[in-house]
Design a protein around this nucleic acid. Structure first.
Length: 586
DNA sequence: GCCGTTTTCGGCCCGACTGTTTTCAGTCG
């Protein structure tokens, strides 16, 4: 059992204990333990076998024992007994907005409600409204929440959230009573999937801003509207929260609502350790509860807050309690990549396979966007469903691309297509094209598109065999995941990263918002091994060039700098790097 | 259940909004 699976079980134990009415600090201890495991940078199995769990903060004797039992036996008696003591459907009640563990416990104990079907029936019969602490309003809200849940998922892909958030942000900026405003939350941190959209605004007239916000045309439903905040549902079923503060409070509110929650907890603890108190209104020179402006540390920006707490500024993408505090204390945070530093994408498709635009249309669009190069890596023949190319068609495409490039050069246009292939990794790590053909291509991406159900060890062997091929420049989408749609296939990513390090193979950060694969949590490890990243659009339409910006956001979450990312290089330097693994000197 | 250079016991991040209550519990972020 790996660290993510163990962390999931610890989190679930925390929730189950809440439903049982356990001490809230005990339930939090399980959640803290889960988080500690998620942040682990080495295989959990190794830590367990070397008996080093006690070196991880947040894991005491009880959790160490439970984690060891899970890792060594794949089971945990305590968890199984706890789970068996409550009906399985009870957990799903917590997915309804407004229903937490306390209310769920009452519903179960008083009405025997143990799943959503029973809950719906009880609401419709009116028996929920008669419970102490409940009422007609609560009952209606539960029904509404269930209806909503059936209609929409509660998590959203980043590009969907951005599509709604950016016009709303612009609208807020345009309002005359708004001084400063920003998105916050997971959107500002550039998480791969978004729960809801957060806005923070400073204004002398909060009510007018809030009234204006809830009347925006994309707002479908108002969940809450007060003097300082509002919550609405916007197009696409995404919840958007607005918080309005005074201008002097703005940096604190922005930091607070940007999170992450884990990052904020450490920030507060740092404040306490300095005899200060941090919340969304300020950094106060008092440990007492107060909002006395005379006790306020003067901070105009988030940067000032970090400085007061002995840290250099931490960019929002790094605020995950993933090592940023240790680095910011020493002033060692990397200068993160900017998406404008990207010069092209090395994994893209055209009408030759399953892309929407022809080579000519791609050239026109990418040149217009100011790209320097664009690799055409259509699918190989095994990807029949994606109209994969035969070796003959690949050779025809090479000729077509060379002709286009010559024409571009003769016209003095500073843009080139690169020939290439996204070659399928077949069983046992064989590639779909032979080495002779791969050697003729400038860019070779190797990806898995079949046999997703193979075991972890088999998949790992397959991928490692592929990256050991000297003609493969980079590994495409490491896990094949489709965010919110398809689980990743099982693969030992650390072992693959090690193999890439040993062979000089690059790893793709697939910038499609459906993938964002390899996951940002692994890039620090890859970087430590000297493995380079390639931020690729995997474009199937020319509009997908916009994914570069999203991909750069994810790369920033992975602590990557310009020099860690191959496609920040100008064309002549890129060509030199492409030749290296093949032993060519250019 | 975890943690500790004033503590091995007594803390654990904290404020806004809602709905149900007459002063607050639950939920959420």
């Amino acid at each position: 059992m790996n660290k993510d699976q163990v962390a999931d079980i610890l989190t679930e134990i925390g929730v189950l204990l809440e439903l049982k009415g356990e001490n809230p600090f005990k339930t939090r201890a399980y959640q803290n333990g889960a988080r500690a495991l998620e942040g682990l940078s080495e295989p959990l199995e190794k830590v367990v076998s070397e008996e080093r769990l006690d070196t991880i903060p947040g894991l005491g004797a009880a959790l160490q024992q439970k984690i060891t039992e899970l890792v060594t036996t794949g089971r945990l008696l305590y968890y199984e007994e706890l789970k068996a003591s409550l009906p399985a459907g009870l957990l799903t009640l917590l997915e309804i907005p407004g229903l937490g563990p306390k209310k769920a416990k009452v519903l179960y104990e008083k009405l025997g409600i143990s799943d959503l079907v029973l809950l719906k029936a009880a609401c419709e019969s009116g028996s929920v409204a008669e419970l102490a602490g409940f009422g007609k309003k609560t009952q209606d809200n539960i029904l509404k929440g269930m209806e909503f849940r059936e209609k929409y998922a509660s998590r959203h892909q980043l590009h969907h959230a951005l599509a709604v958030a950016e016009p709303l942000l612009q609208a807020l900026r345009d309002h005359p009573d708004v001084s400063r405003c920003s998105t916050a939350g997971s959107l500002r941190r550039s998480k791969e999937v978004i729960g809801d959209i957060d806005f923070v605004v400073s204004s002398k007239n909060p009510n007018s801003v809030i009234a204006y916000f809830v009347q925006q045309p994309t707002v479908l439903n108002i969940l809450a509207q007060g003097d300082t905040k509002a919550s609405v549902i916007v197009s696409g079923g995404i919840q958007a929260d607005l918080r309005v503060v005074s201008d002097s409070e703005f940096p604190f509110a922005l930091a607070y609502f940007t999170g992450s929650k884990e990052h904020n907890i450490v920030m507060r603890q740092r404040a306490i350790a300095r005899g200060l108190r941090l919340n969304e209104y300020g950094l106060f020179r008092s440990s007492e509860e107060t909002r006395d402006p005379n006790l306020l540390e003067n901070c105009q920006t988030e940067d000032d807050i970090y400085q007061k707490l002995g840290l250099t500024y931490v960019p929002p993408e790094l605020r995950e309690d993933h090592g940023e505090f240790a680095a910011a204390e020493k002033g060692d945070l990397p200068r993160l990549i900017e998406w404008t530093e990207l010069k092209g994408s090395l994994h893209n498709h055209s009408t030759w396979s399953d892309g929407r635009q022809s080579l000519e249309e791609i050239v026109e669009s990418m040149n217009e966007l100011g790209m320097s190069y664009w690799a055409v890596t259509d699918h190989s023949k095994a990807s029949f469903q994606a109209h994969g190319l035969t070796s003959e068609r690949v050779r025809e495409q090479i000729i077509a691309i060379r002709e286009i490039n010559l024409k571009l050069q003769s016209e003095g246009i500073d843009f080139q297509l690169l020939t290439g292939s996204e070659v399928d990794i077949l069983g046992e790590g064989r590639l779909d094209f032979d080495d002779d053909l791969l050697a003729e291509l400038e860019v070779v991406v190797a990806s898995i598109h079949s046999g997703f159900t193979a075991s972890e060890s088999e998949m790992t062997r397959r991928i490692i065999a592929a990256v050991e091929n000297p003609f493969v420049h980079m590994l495409g989408h490491m896990t094949g995941r489709l965010l919110l749609e398809r689980e990743p296939y099982k693969v030992d990513q650390h072992a693959v990263i090690d193999a890439c390090a040993a062979t000089g193979t690059w790893i793709e950060l697939n910038a499609s918002p459906f993938r964002f694969d390899m996951d940002w949590r692994l890039w620090q490890y890859a970087k430590s091994k000297g493995v380079k990243c390639v931020i690729n659009c995997d474009a199937h339409r020319v509009e997908h060039a916009g994914f570069l910006r999203l991909g750069a956001g994810i790369a920033r979450k992975g602590w990557l700098s310009k020099q860690d990312v191959i496609n920040t290089l100008p064309l002549h330097e890129l060509r030199r790097e492409l030749g290296k693994k093949r032993g060519q000197e250019i």
